[in-house]
Nucleic acid binder design. Sequence first.
RNA 1: GGCCCCAUCGUCUAAUGGUUAGGACAGCGGGUUUUCAAUCCGUUAACGGGAGUUCAAUUCUCCCUGGGGCUGCCA
Length: 515
Amino acid sequence: MRTRFAPSPTGLLHIGGLRTALFAWLVAKQSGAAFTLRIEDTDKTREMAGATQDFVNTMTWAGLTIDEGVMLDENGAITEKGPYGPYHQSARLGLYKEHIDTLLKSGHAYRCFCTPERLDSMRKDQEKMKQPQMYDRLCHTLQPAEVEKRVAAGEKHVIRMLVPREKVITFKDEIYGHITFRGHTVDDQVLMKSDGFPTYHLAHVVDDHFMKMDIVIRGEEWISSLPKHLILFEMFGWTPPKYAHMPLLLNKDRSKLSKRQNDVAASHYIEKGYLPEAIINFLALLGWNPGTTQDVFTLDELIKQFSLERVQKSGAIFDLEKLEWLQGQWMRKMELPVFAANVLTKIEDKFPEAKNDSFFLKKAKLVQERLAFFKDAPEHIEFFYKAPDVSIEFITNEKQKVTKDLIGPILNLLFVELSNLSDGNWNYQEIKHFVEKTYSPNHVYAEKLANHALEISEGKPSVAPEIEYPPYTKNQILWTLRAALTGRKFSPGAFEVADALGKQETLKRLKAVKV
RNA sequence: GGCCCCAUCGUCUAAUGGUUAGGACAGCGGGUUUUCAAUCCGUUAACGGGAGUUCAAUUCUCCCUGGGGCUGCCA
């Protein structure tokens, strides 16, 4: 199914536009067809510089590869390629002119000289009289000779389509199903503006015909213009494509998603640090579901499972809560080396030593399950590279029952125990084992008991060990250790940190606490 | 005003002419745990209203209500 995404370069790529692009891209990829990007730059007054670049950049970021039309060249500059170009509508003016002439000749369109002022007052009158607001066809009554005269005189005018009023238009939308419109409720739409540019309606029909699109996927706001498009296809004698109108993305109050109430630029979310995987996953689930309980999807899985039949008819409120969760899922799903490389780019300026740190992967791993955005990496990683300034007040903790007077002795005890652990054995398990000796009555007692049992089995006379209770609890020891090593209220666990820090640095930090 | 569309937990949604109306996020409670996070378990919460069809309607039909889109020489 050949399809396309055809935004107008009037602003940054809208998040809803990205969703439409995603769904269209999925449909194209499912059938192995080319996905086209076409730029609808027919309104010169609203054009924004850089918009097209933003479209292409954002789609590339999201993984929506463009096969045809407007895309990036090897140097990252805008270019276009494909058999049905040009792909900027502003470069297709001749084609539109040619086809509007066809309609003029066949009587399916007529010139209209009405001024904006007249149209405005006409509409106001209609409103007052509670009439439908439609063009009254004043100019359709003009004699051919007069029309010719006024055109020859260079009088400004537009060209309107002559909608067959008696016609009943029924069509099947791929998402909404059958919809019927009556011709008399369809306005004589302007097809060609007085500046010689086509309106969306003409350009859409001509382009999607000549670009051989099998299906048009666009927002639901277009559904009421569809009769016009279908009539145009018929006037030209062309077979229309299939249509799939996407339910809208909504503000909290259920109105159409707007700038006023939300950040609608896709690039905003890129800047915030969302992963393309999370955004794609989130957008896919807004209006579509797989029919299973799966909720985390890669782009490849979406290609396999997506179908327009499972797209919702009602609009979906753009609520970021689930995006936050998906972001976390995708951050943690990332391969450790890839994750670490991303973290490194955020911290290498501040901590150049991280680049040559053989324990960097270990540190990154500790951060992975608690990092939501890479831009927050520095604060999560900082204490590894910058020895904290830890005071006794900081370590003191009521809940863990760590009182001021205990801290000095505990630190000394830890220092002594850990000093006994050799460099070669400095790893999580051994550290844990050594630290446990300082607080675990069970552990110490169990060892003695084992000894005792061994001696008995060997027939040696032996005295049963007495139960000993070390003076500190596990909480007191571990809180103190972790606080001393990190200088932070929250951090990865004490053993993990000691492991990632290495023996030398760990002992140094234990000594450095200002007791 | 006219035309068109839509309607299940707070949100995204599933399913069905007969179900304890399911899942996910959020919320709440708990487990795990040295803190935080992560994770696990449990739990609160929905068929907008009224007729009709039917033995039976959340499901089908109609009406109402509510919401939305369009109604530009914008797209």
